[in-house]
C-alpha cells in the first residue's frame, strides 16, 4: 500500500521526517528523555506492525504517527502513575490532559518556527503582559508597529500551526 511503513527503508524515511517532532512532544509530555526515547521507539514499532492499516487518503503519515504516540504516551503515563518521579534535567512532565498537552506543544513548536521579531513581540505583550508603549520604547519602535507585529506574528503562527498539522 502506498505510504505504508512496510520495510526498514520506509521506517528510516519516516523517522528522518518526523522523529524530531515526535521526540519533542514525548519529552514535553513525559518529562523524561529516557521514557521519551522509549515512546518514540514504540511509536515506530507499532506503526510498522500496523503499516497496512495506514491509509494516506484518511490522513497524513505525520498525523497517524502522532495519534500512535498519543496512545503510547498515555500507556507510559499510566504505567508510571504507580511510581511518580521528578522530571530530569529541568524538564517537568506535562500535567495537563494529553490533548491539551499536544495543542500546547504545537503552539510551542509554532513559536519556534516564526521569526524572532514576531516571537519577541508576542512573548512581551502576551506572555509577559507588558504594556505596548513600554515594549515600543524598549525596542525603539512606534507603538503602532508593535500592534502591527502582533497581527503579523499571529498570522505567522497560524501558518506554522498548519505546517505542523493543526487543523482546528
Amino acid at each position: 500500500m502506498p505510504g505504508a511503513l512496510s520495510d526498514e527503508r520506509d521506517v528510516r524515511e519516516a523517522y528522518a521526517a518526523h522523529a524530531g517532532e515526535l521526540y519533542g512532544f514525548a519529552v514535553r509530555s513525559l518529562g523524561d528523555s529516557g521514557l521519551a526515547e522509549e515512546a518514540v521507539q514504540e511509536t515506530f514499532l507499532r506503526a510498522w506492525r500496523a503499516g497496512e492499516r495506514f491509509d494516506p487518503q484518511i490522513g497524513s503519515l505525520r498525523t497517524w504517527l502522532f495519534a500512535i504516540l498519543r496512545n503510547v504516551v498515555i500507556d507510559l503515563s499510566r504505567a508510571r502513575a504507580a511510581r511518580p518521579r521528578v522530571g530530569e534535567g529541568g524538564i517537568e512532565p506535562s500535567v495537563e490532559p494529553i490533548d491539551e498537552a499536544l495543542l500546547g506543544w504545537q503552539m510551542e513548536e509554532a513559536m519556534r518556527r516564526i521569526g524572532e521579531q514576531h516571537r519577541r513581540i508576542l512573548v512581551e505583550t502576551y506572555y509577559r503582559a507588558r504594556p505596548y508603549a513600554e515594549v515600543a520604547a524598549e525596542l525603539g519602535i512606534p507603538e503602532g508597529t508593535v500592534k502591527s507585529r502582533v497581527y503579523y506574528g499571529l498570522r505567522a503562527l497560524r501558518v506554522a500551526l498548519e505546517e505542523i498539522g493543526y487543523d482546528g
Binding site: G20, S33, V40, V123
Partner: peptide, 9 residues
C-alpha cells in the same frame, strides 16, 4: 519552552 527543541539521541 520556546527555546531549542530537544533532539532525539
Amino acid at each position: 519552552r520556546f527555546g531549542a527543541a530537544p533532539e532525539p539521541p
